[in-house]
Design a protein around this nucleic acid. Structure first.
Lengths: 386, 386
DNA sequence: CCCATTAAACTCGTCCTACGAGCATAAACG
DNA sequence: CGTTTATGCTCGTAGGACGAGTTTAATGGG
């Protein structure tokens, strides 16, 4: 409750950010990267230990010299509850400051009705609150749909309409941070996955339609209301075809199972993901041709995004990985053919995402931890913990 | 040369950023926005005065109470030389910490040959160095072309090939910051123009082709090598048409004078800008139809970018303004028709840029000042000035 | 014209943090 | 077992931010 003095916990915040971004980092390594003197490092870690934010464990010795310690989350430290809502199930984990996941849970939906699912999430939040008490600082939720200021605007896979997600934390006095699952999986890739270390990264994931995000230094460009990253609704496609989103010529329509069905002159599939997997298993010429068309549209669109954003790396996830693998040459040709000439010398690599199923959960965890490792958050926590 | 103590000049840097971003701001206003106590404000300004970074002038009194002061750049303070290279001329101005432009100059190219133009710029830099001495901290250069790590990759309007721009500062020991003119005009709009205050903004400018940038909190997303923002080379267009950039179906080809000529079945114009202005002056049906097609492509593409980035506002400059004005309804129809449904309730406004001719210069100045108002830059300056 | 009101500047004691220098310590190496 | 090496620890110093109290310069009412 004492007013926060400017810069008081600045260095401490920097240290915690390091710990959150590189779990298992040692005290000496942190001091080196932050250019801290050993004296300051001693002081900062002592202070962080005093307020229950960190503990230290002896690090395995690396050659000569006095061994250093590994910085770990304090057993009484703050945590984030990360939730990942998916079409047929949802997952949760409690995340400590060093990024470690505790109590991972996996639950299949019994009912897919919005109110039932939200009630289950709310229950999970309440249980976590009971278990962790004041340690629970934030709930970070990944949702497969367009999210705007904690409101779900549309969720085609779940077939939900507009929905207030703050219901999830209605029973507890903890802030909620809801985000799009594709965006969050991009965060995971940019922090600890295939795009780790990239200054600018583009992440794309195909499930039903294509979603993604632009990441700058690991921070997603979420736009004015958090709805950024709807790359599937850029008009890369045939303007004659209209999209359920309301626009026409959307890239989406050229990419997912619906596009395959169109090329194969079949009716629009109920489950575009399963349909795509089915087509990928087929070995006939028609299936190959349809896949090639989709892969070309993918490579071509990615090239456009590379032209626009000049990323260090592009990461792809979901069905994009098997699709590309099914027509590697077609992809490369479309991708490189769509690039501006000066990019061709060293085109940004298009890498498969490494986190895959737990990307959204990891990303939600990472963005949640970002909130905890800000200076004001730490100062507030410290003020309450002697 | 004394090592910089962490956080030593943090508050001072915050104050200077305020001054640079809001020229003419008063000391009291700065203290309020930064939540500084009056005591701290007194100390910080005194320190900044001592090291020749700021001066204070009495502010016109606003009602009761002791009058405050306006924070201004110190007459002996650091400056940036902002340069704006254009097709037929170049401009320069010396920018002080409070954003004030001194010694504005305007020079028409006598020759458009790269080496001649660069020599003139180099001469201007040298003269500024002679006049300002150590006060000159940075040269910030706007160029109409793709810039990558201070190298010009392509400049279609100037018809220059790859070029090392660091030649401009070869005679002086001052860093160079080169950037694309469209990107920099976007910075100007986001800081003090039509997009002022926007968290996320998209800026687009049509001259020869279409360029632009995504701005997040006034900072352009410049990509891995500074070549971001080439929106003209997203494949929004007809894939059958190939673009001089090497790709196909570029938006560029649907937007500028070359597109108008295509629609009017005329040969590719030498000067697409003049050609566009000419067509805009025509009153015949064919010209109107051609303009309408281009305007539709513009609105449609902007909608795609809005879907992808969810900006607070879109700003347009150059020929985009008269083009839209020539077919307002067509634009609105294409723009709103291309938006995802949930954006239609309140589509981001598409505003005319307010800086227009001096946008790139202002943007270059702003990004240059960003460099000077960082904590390490201030600490270094202070160490050298008693 | 003077004094109350108001907003802001100034002064100063206190607290806090980062730093550096010097010293202590725990491993590996020969 | 001493030397080498990297790191941790202690403590004196310096400087900034803050708050409380005081002063100052304007307005506006009586």
């Amino acid at each position: 409750m004492t007013p926060v003095r400017r810069g008081q916990w600045q260095t401490a915040a920097d240290v915690l950010s390091q710990v959150a971004r590189q779990p298992g980092i040692t005290r000496a390594a942190v001091a080196r990267t932050l250019r801290l003197s050993t004296g300051s490092a001693t002081e900062v870690t002592a202070r962080l230990r005093d307020v229950h934010l960190l503990t230290e464990a002896p690090a395995p010795s690396q050659g000569r010299g006095r061994p250093t310690t590994v910085l770990q989350a304090h057993p009484e430290g703050p945590v984030v509850l990360a939730l990942d809502l998916r079409q047929s199930n949802w997952r949760s984990a409690v995340v400590a400051l060093d990024g470690s996941l505790q109590d991972p849970q996996y639950t299949r939906h019994r009912s897919r009705r919005a109110q039932v699912v939200l009630k289950n999430l709310r229950h999970a939040v309440e249980q976590t609150q009971e278990r962790y008490g004041d340690r629970l600082q934030l709930v970070s939720l990944a949702v497969p749909g367009t999210v705007r200021d904690n409101q779900l605007m549309q969720a085609p896979t779940l077939e939900w309409v507009e929905l207030d997600l703050t219901q999830v934390t209605a029973d507890v006095d903890v802030p909620l941070l809801a985000g799009n699952d594709a965006t969050l999986s991009g965060v995971a890739e940019a922090r600890t996955g295939a795009a780790a270390g990239a200054g600018t990264a583009v992440h794309l994931i195909i499930e039903v339609g294509i979603g993604g995000t632009l990441l700058i230094d690991g921070v997603p460009a979420q736009g004015a209301s958090g709805a950024g990253g709807e790359y599937g609704h850029m008009p890369f496609g045939d303007r004659a075809r209209s999209c359920p989103c309301g626009a026409r010529g959307c890239w989406d329509l050229e990419i997912d199972g619906r596009a395959l069905a169109h090329h194969l002159k079949q009716p629009r599939p109920d489950d575009p993901v399963a349909y795509t997997e089915e087509v990928l298993r087929r070995t006939d010429r028609a299936a190959h041709a349809a896949v090639a068309k989709v892969v070309a549209a993918l490579g071509y669109g990615i090239a456009g995004l590379v032209n626009a954003h000049d990323p260090d790396v592009v990461t792809i996830g979901g069905l994009a990985i098997p699709l590309r693998a099914a027509a590697e040459d077609t992809f490369t040709e479309a991708y490189e053919g769509g690039l501006m000439r000066f990019h061709r010398g060293s085109p940004p690599p298009v890498l498969a995402a490494t986190h895959q199923p737990d990307g959204p959960l990891r990303g939600a965890a990472a963005l949640g931890l970002d909130q905890l490792t800000t200076e004001p958050a730490i100062a507030t926590w410290a003020a309450h913990h002697s």
